Lab assay of single mutants.
Amino acid sequence: MKVMIRKTATGHSAYVAKKDLEELIVEMENPALWGGKVTLANGWQLELPAMAADTPLPITVEARKL
């Protein structure tokens, strides 16, 4: 699914347009965010693609819901 990742004042957030859902990312498998699992505030887990740590945000990526 397409997910937009952006930086907020409190960390990172994910927006899933198909579900009209925006949630804070509360847990990251990798400190650089990319190439691992993230957990959203509502409990969803997404697998993000591997990208460079300095990838500019906001960005829309293809993520997989676990």
Results as ranks from 00 to 15, higher is better:
Leu57Cys: 05
Glu23Asp: 06
Met1Ala: 04
Leu48Glu: 01
Glu23Met: 15
Thr39Asn: 03
Ala52Asp: 13
Arg6Ala: 10
Gly43Thr: 01
Ile5Gly: 01
Val61Cys: 04
Lys7Met: 10
Trp44Met: 08
Ile59Ser: 04
Ala50Arg: 11
Ser13Gln: 08
Glu62Phe: 15
Ile25Ala: 01
Val38Tyr: 04
Val61Gln: 02
Gly36Ile: 03
Pro31Tyr: 07
Met51Cys: 02
Lys37Trp: 15
Leu57Asp: 04
Thr10His: 13
Glu27Ala: 13
Leu33Trp: 06
Thr60Trp: 15
Ile59Arg: 06
Ala52Gly: 09
Arg6Pro: 03
Ala32Asp: 14
Met51Glu: 03
Leu40Glu: 00
Pro58Asn: 04
Glu29Leu: 06
Gly11Ser: 05
Leu40Pro: 00
Lys19Asn: 15
Ala9Arg: 10
Gln45Arg: 12
Glu47Cys: 13
Leu33Asn: 03
Val3Asn: 02
Met28Phe: 12
Met28Pro: 00
Leu66Asp: 05
Leu57Lys: 02
Thr60Cys: 11
Thr8Leu: 08
Ala17Asn: 08
Thr60Phe: 10
Ala9Met: 10
Pro58His: 03
Pro49Ala: 02
Leu24Met: 14
Leu66Thr: 10
Leu24Pro: 13
Gly43Lys: 02
Met28Ser: 13
Glu27Pro: 00
Ala14Phe: 09
Gly35Gln: 06
Glu23Lys: 05
Ala53Gln: 10
Met4Asn: 09
Ile25Arg: 00
Ile25Lys: 02
Gly36Met: 04
Val16His: 05
Lys2Cys: 13
Ala53Tyr: 10
Ala32Glu: 14
Pro58Cys: 07
Val26Met: 07
Arg64Tyr: 13
Met1Gln: 06
Tyr15Trp: 11
Lys2Asn: 10
Ala53Lys: 10
Leu48Trp: 03
Glu29Met: 06
Pro56Ile: 12
Ala17Cys: 15
Pro56Lys: 12
Val38Leu: 05
Val3Gln: 00
Asn42Met: 04
Gly43Ser: 00
Thr55Trp: 02
Val3Lys: 00
Pro49Trp: 05
Gly36Glu: 02
Ile5Ala: 00
Ile25Leu: 06
Met4Gly: 04
Ala63Gln: 02
Glu47Tyr: 13
Gly35Met: 02
Asp54Lys: 07
Leu57Ser: 01
Lys37Val: 12
Glu62Asp: 10
Ser13Arg: 08
Ala53Met: 10
Ala53Ile: 10
Pro31Phe: 07
Leu40Tyr: 00
Glu27Phe: 13
Trp34Cys: 03
Ala50Val: 12
Leu66Lys: 05
Lys37Asp: 04
Trp34Glu: 02
Leu46Lys: 00
Lys2Ala: 11
Ala14Cys: 11
Glu23Ile: 15
Lys2Met: 15
Lys37Ile: 14
Lys19Arg: 13
Trp34Ile: 02
Met4Ile: 14
Gly43Ile: 01
Lys7His: 07
Gly43Asn: 04
Val16Asp: 09
Glu62Ala: 10
Ile5Leu: 05
Lys18Leu: 12
Gln45His: 08
Thr8Ala: 09
Val61Ala: 02
Ala9Glu: 13
Lys65Pro: 12
Trp34Tyr: 01
Lys65Ile: 15
Lys19Cys: 15
Met51Phe: 06
Glu27Leu: 09
Thr8Cys: 08
Leu48Cys: 01
Pro58Gly: 03
Asn30Thr: 10
Lys2Glu: 14
Lys7Val: 08
Leu21His: 10
Gly43Pro: 00
Leu24Phe: 10
Lys37Ala: 07
Ala32Pro: 03
Pro58Ala: 02
Lys18Glu: 15
Val16Arg: 00
Ala9Pro: 12
